[in-house]
Nucleic acid binder design. Structure first.
Length: 384
RNA sequence: AUACAUAAGAU
């Protein structure tokens, strides 16, 4: 059973939920008896992809098999709700476990905080800090990082300061991820000064920035249209001995794109290939954007060819970008052709679908619009 | 052997 459970965990770790489930069934088929850890592993597999219905089924199965759910069972179930934005349901499980006198631990609290945070409910998330103190469960760096991220998701970057203060007060040492998250939240909230200040502070505290830190700073500069600053930061990164990365290059290309500096964007792409930093879908999406802003839709379309030849599949964002370019220059057929080509193995999002509807409405092709609409509903994308 | 956070691209 231990062996099987270990393998299940491997499937879960690579998001292969179906295989994890099959393995569970195989265990039972072999006449073996799954133990509590086996059940918990399967709940965890479902929870990581937000399949809360299935997670709950396994939870109930566990009880039916005569086990008492432990703190991990409850926490994993909470996480399945959290991942689908169902913070109230996560809270219910939390309350339930308390009523059954199972004590929440730090992970349980962090999961609940993240459930609120993912749902954009920072206030509720922050309110849990005193509860943790009351329960004698000191918050840790994960707690802080979740709260910081929550500030960003709810568009309240200014509340980050409170979280950082709370961390200081409790002598919680922030790690690189926590700093990066906070800097990024400040950047996205337009609080450039605070972001820069935190960048200084992290170094004072002995946390060395990495290429992600610099990418965040570069994106921040590109956000305010400061290409020079973006370039300076990029050079600074290299000068402190941090290797160029896809992330940093992509950030730089994004900065060029915002200004329609297509030549520079393309030059950066060439350079990254030479420095053995293979471009990813983020890089290409920014490059497409560069051509778009520069008013060169043909070259934007050509990026798609290059993606194909380098084996990078366009995702929903890349497609929506291309769709809107085609729509803008009246190449409606191209939009629809790309869709029919990719519809089999691509999950579009609401932005991409909207561009498809725009294409149909320009063409007054209501039949196709309806077809796309049905496709959208089947894909589980709800209209906005 | 099982549960938690962690930047960036399109409208």
């Amino acid at each position: 059973v231990v062996t099987f459970t270990t393998v299940m965990q491997v499937y879960a770790a690579c998001g292969q939920v179906d295989n994890a489930k099959s393995l569970f069934e195989a265990i039972v088929g072999e006449g073996l008896v799954p133990n509590l850890i086996t059940f918990n592993t399967l709940i965890g597999a479902y929870s990581s992809v937000g399949m809360y219905v299935e997670a709950l089924q396994v939870f109930n199965l566990l009880v039916k098999a005569g086990f008492e759910p432990d703190v991990i069972s409850y926490t994993a179930l909470m996480n399945s709700y959290s991942k689908s934005g169902k913070s109230d349901e996560a809270r219910e499980v939390f309350d339930l476990m308390k009523r059954r006198s199972q004590n929440p631990n730090i992970v349980t609290y962090n999961t609940l905080i993240d459930a609120y945070g993912s749902a954009g409910r920072v206030t509720e998330a922050l309110r849990l800090l005193p509860d943790m103190d009351f329960d004698d469960i000191p918050p840790n760096v994960v707690t802080i990082c979740s709260l910081i991220a929550a500030c960003g998701r709810s568009g309240q970057a200014h509340k980050c300061a409170d979280v950082l203060k709370a961390a200081n007060l409790r002598k919680i040492v922030l790690n690189l991820n926590a700093y990066n998250t906070a800097i990024s939240v400040y950047m996205n909230g337009g609080m450039y000064e605070e972001a820069k200040e935190l960048y200084e502070i992290m170094q004072l505290r002995g946390v060395a920035p990495d290429s992600i830190t610099f990418s965040i700073l570069i994106y921040g500069a590109s956000k305010v249209g400061d290409v020079e600053e973006a370039q300076t930061l990029y050079k600074e990164m290299l000068s402190v001995g941090i290797e160029a990365s896809v992330e940093a290059f992509s950030a730089l290309i994004h900065a060029y794109a915002q200004q329609g500096m297509a030549a520079e964007a393309h030059a950066a792409l060439t350079e990254m290939k030479q420095s053995s930093c293979p471009p990813n879908v983020f890089t290409y999406t920014s490059l497409i954007q560069a051509y778009r802003v520069a008013g060169m839709p043909e070259l934007a379309a050509a990026v798609l060819q290059e993606m194909e030849s380098s084996g990078i599949k366009p995702d929903a964002v890349a497609c929506s970008s291309l769709f809107s370019i085609f729509n803008e220059c009246g190449k409606i057929e191209k939009t629809l052709r790309l869709w029919s080509k990719l519809r089999e193995d691509l999950n579009l999002n609401e932005v991409a679908y909207t561009q498809l509807f725009i294409a149909c409405s320009i063409k007054k092709d209501w039949r196709t619009a309806l077809e796309i609409f049905e496709d959208m509903l089947q894909a589980g994308v709800s209209p906005t």
